[in-house]
Nucleic acid binder design. Sequence first.
RNA 1: GGCCUCAUCGUCUAGCGGCUAGGACACUGGGUUCUCAUCCCAGCAACCGGAGUUCGAUUCUCCGUGAGGUCACCA
Length: 475
Amino acid sequence: MTEVRTRFAPSPTGYLHVGGIRTALFGWLLARQDDGQFILRLEDTDRQREVKEAKDHIINSLDALGLKYDEGPNKGGPYAPYIQSERLDIYHNWANKLISSGRAYADPYSTEEVQAFREEAAKNKRPFLYRNHRPDNPSPWDGSTPLRFKSEPKAYAWHDAVMGELNSSEEAIDDFILVKSDGFPTYNFAHIVDDCEMKITHILRGQEFLPSVPNYLNLYEALGLTPPILATLPHVLGPDGKKKLSKRDGARDILDYIKLGYLPEALISFIATLGWNDGSEQEIFTRDELIKKFSLDRVGRAGAQFDERRLNWINGNLIRQMDLNELYNVASQYWPTEADGFSDSYKMEVLGLIQERLKFLAEIPELSRFFFVDLPLDPTLISEHKQLSKLSNAELKEILIRVKSSLEQSDYTIDDITNRLNSLLTDTGLKPVVLFSLIRIATTQAPASPSLAGSLSVLGKDKVNARLTDQINNL
RNA sequence: GGCCUCAUCGUCUAGCGGCUAGGACACUGGGUUCUCAUCCCAGCAACCGGAGUUCGAUUCUCCGUGAGGUCACCA
């Protein structure tokens, strides 16, 4: 058995979204689990749509997710170059083979003429097939016109590693363009040549290519090649649950998720389980588990809707499981500017308190700001509180004064603060909802915060005192 | 319109002839001395329709229906 060689072959026309990454991930998993090779190949044969920065952006995206490729641009390998625009002579060699075997010919028609054929077919409600207009005696190809494949229409039945047994009728076969008049090959031609040259064993790609597969099979035959294993991945659907996820409809750049503080491991697990599972009731998989367990025949055949809420759950789950030091390291760029100048140990304590409520790292500022800066007094926190609003300012003030005098004597360990809070509860006879809510509001001025004793302990005596005083003076 | 693919809770899915159709996310209710969150418990919620095969169909077959994809000198 030859080693597994999979490839991810995006065209550098923009960023990568969840759908594209999933194709890359599955190929990567296949290669890793078999100790094979994962290849990145850039399919830049459309010079109009090419975006300059896209190449680096794609490479950065794979890198951010830890999907390292063994061969590809910036890396090299035994079948370099891995950028199609640098392989033009290879495609022309293969094209010449087809010309000599009589399986390719110069397209004699202008774009307008072909368009006219197409419209005529549409008017007659007939499917348009270029081969119905195939010229009898085409002139030799001089490269100034498209080179077309001379197809041999027939029905096909083939096996797809995901979809199972597929078949097509001869209407699916047509004379498609191999080489464009600008000398660049089409995807339809170039990918077949490259996959052969690069010894690719599995082709993974989206469902949108399914209607073209019969044409590819026809071309493989004309070239005398055995097709690799074909695997068609169903689309990842957008939020509406119907159409495939697309940049046009606002699909997010995968790097945006990274910037928001989604962990690569969470993204990997989430994306892998979009259409795949191992049959057990496990919900989250580590990278190693995926490598061990992934298989194409357990990939679902229906499109899967992309649901960010599930991603949030996975990410929050992994954040909670992380060791605090480890979390602190990955969180370093997410602190609010107000945190500048605070010590690592202080920030680490803050992080420890908010860890369990983070869904993604970019939430750190809103959840932690009051630990670093005194927020302005917000009277509505009291006036709109269903219990506190019943008390007069004088009563509130009296309670806070007692709190303050007790806490002034605390050593500010969590245990001591907890004990003092409990004593205050019995001494004042107040219900927890009244006493604790008041203290929390006075010391944070935030609608939500971590546990009271923990927050007070981290804030420290000076800040707590000052904030209590401020609240008392403004009642 | 032709060709192709798909179809289980709102969402991701398990199921590969016999199950009270399972799990998770989300949602709702309750508990954990304040809030938000975590955690625990409970609840809500699905086999697109119709034939056929079979003792028995979510599962197999066919026909519908619905959804999507594709019919480029884009990939």
